[in-house]
């Protein structure tokens, strides 16, 4: 998790993300997947799947495996921890996560 003092960018409104799904935002040339889970909890990780190089993680199905909140890559179904970006099946394919928060109705992400 990135911990330096973040600079926040507004990317969309909460209504732009259907509950239980993700979207991809382009922030400072980064493709960032932002997910909206139950209770309007937001999570952000890289959108690019390291295994394929395709920008697709926001299109995966979200859910939980045990205690972990995860998204399954739509291409090869490997799971990424939404909080940390860790890939559960092959740790070398882990991605990074980003701070994300809700400011009023605005979804803010810190690409840092």
């Amino acid at each position: 998790m990135h911990t330096a003092s973040p600079h926040w960018t507004a990317v969309c409104s909460l209504a732009d993300i259907l509950p239980g799904t993700g979207v991809c935002a382009l922030v400072e040339d980064r493709h960032i997947a932002i997910f909206r889970l139950a209770g309007d909890q937001l999570y952000a990780i890289d959108n690019i799947d390291p295994r394929s190089g395709a920008s697709v993680l926001s299109r995966g199905l979200v859910g939980n495996l045990g205690e972990q909140l995860v998204v399954a890559s739509p291409l090869y179904k490997n799971h990424f921890d939404l909080r940390t970006g860790a890939c559960l099946e092959t740790p070398e394919h882990s991605v990074r996560s980003y701070p994300v928060r809700l400011n009023g109705d605005s979804v803010m992400v810190a690409p840092g």
Binding site: C12, A25, H31, S55
Partner: peptide, 11 residues
């Protein structure tokens, strides 16, 4: 492709 940008996917 992007929620905040009309450009296509560069990948």
């Amino acid at each position: 492709t992007f929620v905040n940008d009309g450009r296509p996917d560069t990948r």
